[in-house]
Amino acid sequence: MIPGRFEYHQPDSLAAAVGLLSELGEDARVIAGGHSLIPMMKLRLAMPEHLVDLKAIDTLKHINVADGVVRIGAMTTQAELIGSAELQLAAPIVKETSLQIADPQIRYQGTIGGNVANGDPGNDMPALMQALDASFTLHGPGGARDVKARDFYEAAYFTARDDLEILTEVSFPTCTGGYAYEKQKRKIGDYATAAAAVLLTKAADGSCSHAAIALTNLADTPVFCDAASTHLMQSGVSADSIAHAVQSCISDIEPVEDNRGPAEFKKHAAAIILKRSLETAWSRA
């Protein structure tokens, strides 16, 4: 558990960081909180020759809510997400999710940018971002572009981000309807056996005006359950439609066996967790 050798860089502006990445090419890796990257380096699964640390770039640390849009700088830590009163009002599901990530020590270091850019199916933020229909802003040598969270994840550790791009901001519409993030894990600090992000908005007439469901660690990418979400909006929320939605989501997932258990168990647990998440979200809607 001793990492290989690397050079350490600490640019103080986004331009300098992007410049460094272009100059150093594929031997360089961005480091944010380091709580996914450093463990991989200690196992020598990652052996970057250069680390470009983003922590001195002030423009990457912010939480802004304006005009119905939440904008979060990539270097905002999970602890800061939990502590933000503004965010709690604009999108309470972010805090609920963040509190289920790792443990307090890790959350003081780990960032939202690192969590969504990492591409590990075990990370909790990606499914949340898909449920929120978030966009990720990427800055590369050719300028900036936005990619939808729902289009970002290609396979485990493969994302739409180019190696030379830095993820600078996460943005999504404010979301004040019913919400829930339910996660089954073996202990504090463990990745999910199964987890579900659910957003349900109840219209004045009791119908479901908005539904979004996404699942964590049940396939090699987060799973946005489009069909189930649409079904709930069309048919409204009832015991029957919840059962139907759960059925639909479970057919979308492909969990793999690991020390948490075989796929069969994970599917069963996922169905239970999702059902609870839907019920909680609707009760808050």
Binding site: Q184, R186, T193, R260, G261, P262, F265, H268, A269
Partner: peptide
């Protein structure tokens, strides 16, 4: 008795 083995016990007893 981790989660999945407890689940398996319940499963084998027909509790699901």
């Amino acid at each position: 008795h981790d989660h999945w083995r407890i689940w398996k016990t319940a499963n084998e007893l027909g509790l699901h």
